[in-house]
Each structure stands twice: as structure tokens, then as C-alpha cells.
């Protein structure tokens, strides 16, 4: 192990992280969580997670099943609020703003923070209506023409336009699994979020569809802050710039993806990456 390398990275990290935890001045940090603990009833699922998520880049969350990756992800768009008996402690800031502040409506927050689920979940509506759904709710288009533009540009950004432009009236559920997942990404993009959360977006897809989604994520990172949970080490290595390793509800280690995969600080991370457990 090369200790020198670590020190160098740490030094470069330290001007990004401010130890006092005050409002981030650094525009490169989009989401900042401090001491986040989550309880489902009496059961604690997350233990004081401190994590900074960079703007316009992909952060991968890895770790064995049940370690709290999805739970952490759901904190960022307050989807945990919809779960009965779920309680959150600690602070979560997006663009320096506390998302648990009274002035923040969780419903509007979710428009800024999109989410893509493990299993593609298009609504039983047409392809067009699926993408237009959020834009309609939030009144983003004042005319039919504007709505059509939003739908088209979202589908283009999700790399699906070419495949569906002649069949926008067909049900979203008639698409293949990979197409459905890109449709759902387009649906999220249409409400103009800054952050996109993806919870194992490829685990229900075949390798070719997975490759397409990975390609898409790689393009999207230039405009969005993306957090992706994945079980595939290879995928984390391919698409992410930063990686965070969770174990038993704790954030064990975080850093540039390259470094985590080649030279992790913690032996637990090493064991997980090399497939010795998990």
C-alpha cells in the first residue's frame, strides 16, 4: 500500500471539506450530509454518515445488501418521509440549504432531486404522457408546443428519442426493460432536477441495456449531480468519479473511485472489492 498517495489525496480533499461543517462555500459540493442517522422504528439503519457529493459528477454507493445504501439515497429526496415509522437525524444540505428546513416543501424538493428505481416503473400511460407527467404537474409548459419540446428534449437527453419518436402514443409499458429504464430517466429529467438518484438502475437489465444506461450516465454527468447505488464493482469503476463504501449502516470509506479500487485505506473495503465478502 502506498501511504504517500493517500496523504496527497487527503490534502487535496481537505480544501473541499470544511471541518466546521458550516454552509459550503465550495460550489463543487452539491449535497452535503453530516451525522445522518436513520431509524426504522427502533431499528437503526444508518449511523452518523458524513458524505459530500460533488456537483456535475457521478458518485457511486457500494456495499453489501442491507448496509443502508438505499436508505441513504432516500434521505436526499426525503422519500423516507413516506415510510411509516422512519426517523432521520443529522443535517442534509443541497446547495448549502438544509432540506429539513421548515421552508422546504418535500414535494417540491423531489422535483429538484429526481429518482430512478431498481425496477423500471413507467406509469400505465403513453410514452408521451409518462415524460410529460412531471412537467404537467409542476406547470413547466404553458402550451402544448412547449410540452412537446420538453418531452422531446428529455427523451433526447435520455438517448431514447430515436427509438420512440414514431410511437409516442403507445403505452410506456410496451417498451423493453432497458428502454423503460431510459424512459423513467427521461421522465425524471423532464422536471429539470439538479440531482438524480439511481438505486441499482441496471440490476433488472441485460448486459446490452446496462451498457446503454452506463453510457447515458456518463453523458448526464456533465449536467447533473448523479448518485448511483450499484452492486457491480465494474459498473462503479466505469461510471463514477467518486465512490463511497457502506458497511453495516456506516460509511466506511470514501474517495476518488480510482483510488478506492486500486488502493483502499480500509481492509474492509479491500475485502469487499476483491469479493472476499458481501
Amino acid at each position: 500500500m502506498n501511504r504517500v498517495d493517500h496523504a496527497a489525496i487527503k490534502a487535496s480533499d481537505s480544501d473541499v471539506r470544511r471541518p466546521d461543517g458550516g454552509p459550503t462555500a465550495d460550489p463543487r459540493i452539491k449535497v452535503k450530509t453530516r451525522g445522518v442517522s436513520v431509524f426504522y422504528g427502533d431499528k437503526q439503519a444508518l449511523f452518523g454518515v458524513d458524505l459530500d457529493i460533488d456537483e456535475k459528477s457521478v458518485t457511486a454507493l457500494i456495499g453489501p445488501s442491507g448496509c443502508g445504501k438505499s436508505t441513504y439515497l432516500r434521505c436526499i429526496n426525503r422519500m423516507n418521509d413516506t415510510i411509516e415509522g422512519c426517523r432521520i437525524e443529522g443535517s442534509i444540505e443541497i446547495d448549502g440549504e438544509d432540506i429539513h428546513d421548515r421552508s422546504i416543501d418535500p414535494v417540491l424538493l423531489r422535483a429538484r432531486v429526481g429518482m430512478v428505481f431498481q425496477k423500471p416503473n413507467p406509469f400505465p400511460k403513453s410514452i408521451f404522457d409518462n415524460v410529460a407527467y412531471g412537467a404537467r404537474i409542476h406547470g413547466l409548459a404553458s402550451s402544448r408546443k412547449e410540452l412537446e419540446e420538453i418531452v422531446q428534449s428529455s427523451l433526447e437527453k435520455a438517448g431514447l428519442w430515436g427509438e420512440v419518436k414514431d410511437r409516442l402514443g403507445q403505452p410506456g409499458t410496451s417498451l423493453s426493460g432497458g428502454q423503460q429504464q431510459r424512459l423513467v430517466i427521461a421522465r425524471a429529467i423532464a422536471v429539470r432536477p439538479d440531482v438524480i438518484l439511481m438505486d441499482e438502475p441496471c440490476s433488472a437489465l441485460d448486459p446490452i441495456a446496462t451498457a446503454k444506461i452506463e453510457e447515458l450516465i456518463d453523458e448526464l454527468r456533465f449536467n447533473y449531480c448523479i448518485v448511483i447505488v450499484t452492486h457491480s464493482m465494474a459498473q462503479a469503476a466505469r461510471v463514477s468519479q467518486k465512490t463511497a463504501f457502506f458497511h453495516l449502516g456506516k460509511l466506511v470509506e470514501t474517495g476518488p473511485t480510482e483510488l478506492i479500487f486500486t488502493n483502499p485505506r480500509e481492509s474492509r473495503t479491500q475485502d469487499y472489492i476483491t469479493g472476499r465478502f458481501g
Partner: peptide
Amino acid sequence: LRDGSAALGA
């Protein structure tokens, strides 16, 4: 479906 809709800010 409920989750998907809620996650879009509905």
C-alpha cells in the same frame, strides 16, 4: 407507481 410519482414531486 406511487413511489415513482412521489419521486417526481407529485
